[in-house]
Amino acid sequence: MERLKTFLRHPTGMIGLVILMAVVVLAVLAPTLFPDDPWEMVAAPFQPPASEGLPLGSDMLGRSVAAGIAYGARVSLTIGVASTLAALCIGVTIGAIAGYFGGKVDDLMMRITELFQTIPGFVLAILLVATIGPTLTNVIISIGAVSWPPLARLTRAEFMRLRGREFVQAAVCQGQAPMVVALRHILPNAISPIIVTGSLTIATAILIESALSFMGLGDPNLMSWGLMIGASRTVIRQAWWMSMFPGIAIVLTVLAINLVGEGLNDTLNPRISRKARKA
């Protein structure tokens, strides 16, 4: 409760939260606001913003840009959250095992992690999607597969830090199983930085998804912001609005998530007091 209050007093964090909630509301209400399928050609092509029934104009096939942005919000948020959850599962598991057991196990886990870290994440994501095919699930898997190493390293560091603490030693001495020690005693104390990094991972995931769709490697059956920009990039001289509005949507969403992440960091990290930060 105390922390929630701190967060609510965090100015940039609150700005982020408000924008993010607006995007979430837009995503949830998309079918109500725009009953037509976003792919439906509802108007004449190349209609500028503020035309009849088209607040943000129409694209080259006469599809509503506004509807595309609303439905694109669903895709971006779904992929951002789902792939971050996937990355958390992999990253936290590997990091926890490495940090808890140390030694040879740690070496092995970290070498695997480093293997992934040496390959540029986006290139690997392109490769994965191109190989296993661009569907929603595959895009989530691919982004998850390239996003977990930082989470693994962070979790490992936290686990190593807490592994030697008295309360953990006490639990071990009581004969509790490693799994129980890790989940009940270490993880709750390590969770704050993981939550912060996880929230920022969502932003990165949304960016990767947009970039994949921009390159035509997204699921072609889903209207997403990256796809909208990629499709209208070539007509930018005739119709700026087709790529501009989805671009703004991406910027706002990613910015909002980053602000929220920063706010969470300041709130959850006991070593940064708000007063100290202000001084």
Partner: peptide, 26 residues
């Protein structure tokens, strides 16, 4: 390229109206 991609999207919408669901595969 683009023209083919747009054509595919156009065909999917056209056929969806009569109940034929095209699943585009990149």
């Amino acid at each position: 390229g683009e023209t083919h991609q747009r054509t595919a999207e156009f065909l999917r919408q056209s056929l969806a109206r009569v109940g034929i669901d095209l699943q585009l595969q990149g």
